[in-house]
């Protein structure tokens, strides 16, 4: 009896010791900061000031009345929707072609398409910053070469197209990842299914619709969720390529939080926007769990 209790205690001590480092790190740098952010969102305070002034829901009301907050949120949504269409869409099409459409060179195509995934996002941003540059950029030169006129304010300087230009860069960087994801799913579909479908008269597009699509449904859901969460958290491309400009036109939630907290020093306000971002992310996380459980 006593020895059993002792063994139980030792087991608890052992489990605790094995879990402690993970819990300590996640607790100190993820969970506690989330709670502190929530608390801070009800106060007004700056980077250096130790005085926290309670302001209730003012920071949230300020956000809802702040046109730049809505621009940032809208840009996140544009990036999410645009990325799902361009990255998941193109990735799935390319994967389908590599899986069954072509016979030679699929490894070479896969390697090239996947390559940008390992390039740092800052390097990607700098390369594309130069391509879009109005003076030395390749895009201006190419557009002029075919007799068209490039945008007067520059590809990134024109607020109406700068977000689109970022979508192109993001697609360049991420399509390969989506393609490989879908390709793995396609290769897991048993060949017999296609043979059975062919016996029933389903070939080509019909086979794609009735065999391929149901077979990769779960993978597509995962790809869409990864893209959605990535679009919500986007920071590097925007920060390096435009810094949120011109005139806040390309601001996203991530860069706006950074601007408010560390450039303008409105940390309480930044916390309120952070909590809004966190709530959206948690909702997406729950959706991910629900959807992956069904699959």
């Amino acid at each position: 009896m006593i020895s059993g209790a002792l063994r139980g205690l030792r087991l608890a001590g052992w489990n605790g010791a094995m879990l402690a480092p993970a819990l300590a790190l996640v607790g100190v740098f993820v969970l506690i900061p989330s709670v502190v952010t929530l608390a801070g969102s009800f106060f007004a305070f700056g980077i250096t000031s130790s005085a926290w002034r309670f302001v209730g829901l003012d920071n949230y009301l300020q956000a809802f009345a702040d046109p730049i907050f809505w621009v940032a949120l809208r840009n996140n949504i544009i990036i999410i929707v645009g990325s799902i269409i361009s990255q998941v869409g193109l990735g799935a099409i390319l994967a389908a072609i590599l899986d069954r459409g072509i016979k030679r060179g699929s490894t070479v195509y896969r390697t090239i398409t996947f390559m940008p995934v390992v390039i740092s996002s800052v390097a990607v941003s700098l390369i594309w910053l130069m391509i879009y540059d109005p003076n030395v950029g390749a895009l201006n030169a190419l557009v002029k070469a075919i007799g068209l006129r490039p945008p007067r304010l520059g590809w990134l300087g024109d607020p109406s197209i700068s977000i689109l230009m970022m979508l192109v860069t993001a697609a360049w960087a991420n399509v390969g990842f989506q393609m490989v994801l879908v390709l793995a799913g396609l290769q897991a579909i048993p060949k017999e299914l296609y043979e059975a479908a062919a016996l029933d008269g389903a070939r080509g597009l019909k086979a794609f619709w009735y065999v391929t699509l149901p077979g990769i449904r779960n993978i597509l859901v995962v790809g869409i969720l990864i893209t959605t969460i990535g679009g919500l958290k986007v920071f590097d491309f925007v920060f390096v390529m435009t810094g949120g400009g011109p005139a806040n036109a390309t601001q996203v939630m991530g860069t706006y939080i950074y601007l408010q907290a560390f450039t303008l020093g409105n940390m309480g306000y930044a916390d309120a926007i952070s909590i809004i971002l966190l709530l959206i992310a948690l909702a997406l996380g729950v959706a991910q769990l629900k959807l992956s459980r069904r699959g």
Binding site: V30, S34, T37, I257, Y258, L277, L282
Partner: peptide, 14 residues
């Protein structure tokens, strides 16, 4: 599910 963007302020303070 917690994005780093939403804990920048306390992370910096810690």
């Amino acid at each position: 599910a917690v994005p780093a963007q939403s804990v920048l302020v306390p992370l910096y303070q810690i």
